[in-house]
């Protein structure tokens, strides 16, 4: 490679890194200045000590887990069936799963409130549990584009039809086929979809706030409006969580089983 090229490549890389890292460093620096005249972790201590932090964070983690379960139960059989029996519908389904990227969450949630209000036929919003369930459903929709893509990509690496037929002729029914053959072979893909879902759910504000749920997103917003140093600490904590999820996906994909259908 020519010397000049290399210089420009490094320059672009440097500018990009600065653009990305500088705000983080600045935020981190600021979050350490709660105590006058010296650096300290006081802001973090106060965040972790806040019972509201613990409650909302736990709530969001539980919601995330249910979102992932719902997403897997919905997406794995659907993507599998589309690949197996209805391949001509794939473009249509792919388009539908992309809709949540185009339709703002606020539109979806207002739709929910109108559809499932206390006076409707399906009064999800009449009880707290119902609202929780609706939140999970809403999050599953928001995570759909990521979940579907991840699972569909995973299914592409195995010969779905032949493996299904091989299992069928050995006497297996659909439950066994999905649970013992299909799911294990796309597990890594499912996990990466799951971590993406988790990252989305943990910091989500719009739906949680409008459905009036005690989630982590609205808590972040509330703290941000009412104190100085804690929001910076929280921003970094959220960032670390999201980043941790992404790294886990990377690590897990190293362990992806090599497929018999792609002999080395």
């Amino acid at each position: 490679m020519k010397q000049g090229n290399r210089f420009w490549a490094w320059l672009v890389f440097g500018v990009g890194t600065t653009y990305f890292v500088l705000p983080l460093v600045a935020t981190f620096e600021f979050s350490l200045r709660k105590r006058r005249g010296e650096y300290s972790f006081d802001a973090y201590r106060s965040v972790f000590g806040d019972p509201n932090f613990q409650a909302t964070f736990t709530y969001s983690v539980v919601v995330a887990v249910f979102t992932i379960l719902l997403g897997v139960l919905l997406v794995v059989p659907t993507a599998y069936w589309i690949r197996l029996r209805l391949p001509h519908l794939r473009p249509v389904v792919e388009f539908i799963t992309l809709l949540p990227l185009v339709i703002p969450a606020i539109v979806i949630v207002f739709g929910y409130i109108r559809m499932f209000g206390s006076n409707s036929a399906l009064p999800f919003l009449a009880t707290a549990r119902g609202a929780d369930a609706l939140l999970v459903i809403g999050y599953a929709v928001l995570a759909l584009p990521y979940m579907y893509r991840a699972v569909d990509t995973g299914l592409r690496t195995i010969d779905v039809r032949t493996l299904t037929e091989a299992a069928q002729i050995l006497g297996a029914g659909w439950t066994i086929i999905i649970a013992r053959i299909i799911l294990p072979n796309v597990l890594i893909a499912v996990l990466s979809g799951a971590f993406l879902s988790f990252a989305i759910v943990i910091g989500e504000f719009t739906m949680a706030s409008l459905l009036n749920r005690p989630a982590f997103g609205p808590y972040l917003q509330n703290i941000g409006a009412n104190s100085a140093y804690e929001p910076s600490a929280l921003a970094l904590i959220s960032f670390a969580i999201t980043w941790g999820c992404m790294s886990l996906i990377q690590i897990l994909s190293r362990f992806a089983p090599r497929s018999a259908n792609r002999p080395n």
């Binding site: 195995i158 069928q168 002729i169």
Partner: peptide
């Protein structure tokens, strides 16, 4: 249905279950 016929089949594309060991593959049925 295929799973009611008690027929054995070998496919052109090996079609072993990649997530199972050889013994688990043979023992699947």
């Amino acid at each position: 249905k295929p799973n009611q016929r008690n027929v054995g089949m070998v496919f052109q594309a090996y079609a072993l279950f990649p997530n199972l060991t050889v013994a688990q593959n043979i023992g699947f049925g």
